[in-house]
Design a protein around this nucleic acid. Sequence first.
DNA 1: GTAAAAGTTGACGCTGACGTCAAGGGCAAG
DNA 2: CTTGCCCTTGACGTCAGCGTCAACTTTTAC
Lengths: 124, 124
Amino acid sequence: MRIGEVASAAGVSTRALRYYEQQQLIVSSRSAGGQRLYAPDTVERVRWIQLLYAAGLSSRTIVEFLPCVHTGIAGPEMIARLRAERDRLDEHMRDLAATRARLDSVLAAAEFDATRSGDEAAEV
Amino acid sequence: MRIGEVASAAGVSTRALRYYEQQQLIVSSRSAGGQRLYAPDTVERVRWIQLLYAAGLSSRTIVEFLPCVHTGIAGPEMIARLRAERDRLDEHMRDLAATRARLDSVLAAAEFDATRSGDEAAEV
DNA sequence: GTAAAAGTTGACGCTGACGTCAAGGGCAAG
DNA sequence: CTTGCCCTTGACGTCAGCGTCAACTTTTAC
């Protein structure tokens, strides 16, 4: 696959893919003319990368994780790192849930106030 | 309260507080000598700000939300924005949960593999 | 009264994940 | 052959939330 195909299949820009390659997150072979060629499973890999970015991991961390993500094999040190990141994720999710709850109660109050002042448009 | 007190009470740097003021997130009066003085509830406000930052909101968004967060009053437009952000948060949390699950299954595989190869240190 | 601690206003630095030109080369179609 | 689209490297730009001097002033403690 060429870079544009991978980009649209994975929903990222070609710039992002070149950046990922520079960060050693993905690899490519080259055509005779020097164009990048990707294995099909690169798309899956890129989706993983996006997930891990969204989870707050850095390129440096992701590049360490990706091998064992694919092979399922990790040394004890890597297992500890994986656990640590999972626990960080858990904590972050708890914080988000708390924030969401507080935001929701603010919303409830605002909606109640809106209905009381007769603003029909704000009602569910 | 002076800036240092608020900073340590809220767990942020003084630099952050000055930045928040510049972004109109908090206000201060001044002493005769020109030093910032804060109302005690500023601490709570700063905690809110931190929560919303952690939830991925920008200063621009937070400055719009904070008034109705405190008063519980919001126009229909603001209520829509609040709902939108809450929904974004929900979606983000779902993504994080999915990522966490996938990470966890990788971990399970790695741990299993580690026990099979007799690496006691990696066992729970 | 004086030294230390805490505060003030600039202003530049930093980090990360790309966006965005610029100036060209590769490649299938007609 | 040339049109047009996709690709290449290189390099500078961006944005946000602060960190970090620097050079002073205010306040506090003794």
